[in-house]
Design a protein around this nucleic acid. Sequence first.
DNA 1: AAGGGAAGCAACCGCAGGGGG
DNA 2: GCCCCCTGCGGTTGCTTCCCT
Length: 357
Amino acid sequence: MGRPPCCDKVGVKKGPWTPEEDIILVSYIQEHGPGNWRSVPTNTGLMRCSKSCRLRWTNYLRPGIKRGNFTDHEEKMIIHLQALLGNRWAAIASYLPQRTDNDIKNYWNTHLKKKLKKLQTGSTAEDGFSGNSQQPISKGQWERRLQTDIHMAKQALCEALSLDKPSHDHHHVQDLKPSISNINGISTTTTTTTTRPHQASTYVSNTENIARLLENWMKISPKAQTISSDDHQSKVHHQNMLHNGSSSSTTDGAHSATTTTPDNNDHHQGFDSLFSSFNSSTLSDNASQLSADNNHQTSTTTNTTSLMMFQDESKPDLEAAAGSAAAAVDQVPLTLLEKWLFDDATAHQAHDQDLLF
DNA sequence: AAGGGAAGCAACCGCAGGGGG
DNA sequence: GCCCCCTGCGGTTGCTTCCCT
């Protein structure tokens, strides 16, 4: 007897998610937390496969996701890590906590692969650089890398634990902000051009419904109340949302991987602005950190109360630790991670790439 | 203006691994 | 130790838009 399918094929909706579905999923997770995906479709009434729900959450709705163009730094990190770890996208993503493995995978396949290929053909390819798994890795080398990986994670954990609280908070700031962005993205694309116009059109058609749903959600959810206790605040939130949405209409933001002008960030940028207005607290030092990659020029602040919202939905500790370390990478010119990357025996391979970037 | 190929990204599929009974 | 359930991961597909002719 075969394994039962993860979901009934009949009556399971496929394809792009609608804003309503997003709202339902987010509100459910907000109340119950992520996990137990099997029960999500039944409990929410979503006509989606549990896998689809999980995927939607982890790749799109989950707090802490940064969307838009990859920075040079991220690009280099990916190249380095890919050279070290191969196509272990989840592992690579753990070092880029704001990016999903799917995002990284897509970026690799669509941008970096081509880029490296071009470079490879343009330069002498015998220097050992493969940039990919075609380079045979001996078992010993692999184990060594794995050990290094584990060691790094441990160090990152220690580092994260010894970080100042603001940094810790910052991690959550990053966790939360995009979540708000996402939520807002659902309700504000009336005036905001997304990188996925077809989705935008879907969203546009549902703007009012979603805004209403969101309002209800904010009222209903006990946790949400802690962050939206002030109705006025949410109204300001809303107004800014619309305002920023109208001013952040962009052209397709996914043209150049190395172009990091604010304008070609995706639709979330406007929501970043929104988020910053949502929070009236002072600008933390995190702002400078985030502004380093040009994607968060107007954002990066929040209050700790709001951070509670999705706190229990962060990545696992280890990843979070690594994430904190990776986040700190933006701040410090040469972090542990980078040092490790550069010191690694294979760094010479990537070095050739670096010279060309 | 229209058509076709290329590009980009969200979502799906199938497999593997972990954990509990 | 085995089985089953659930989750995570990586490869792949499909849809939409962009761009060139």
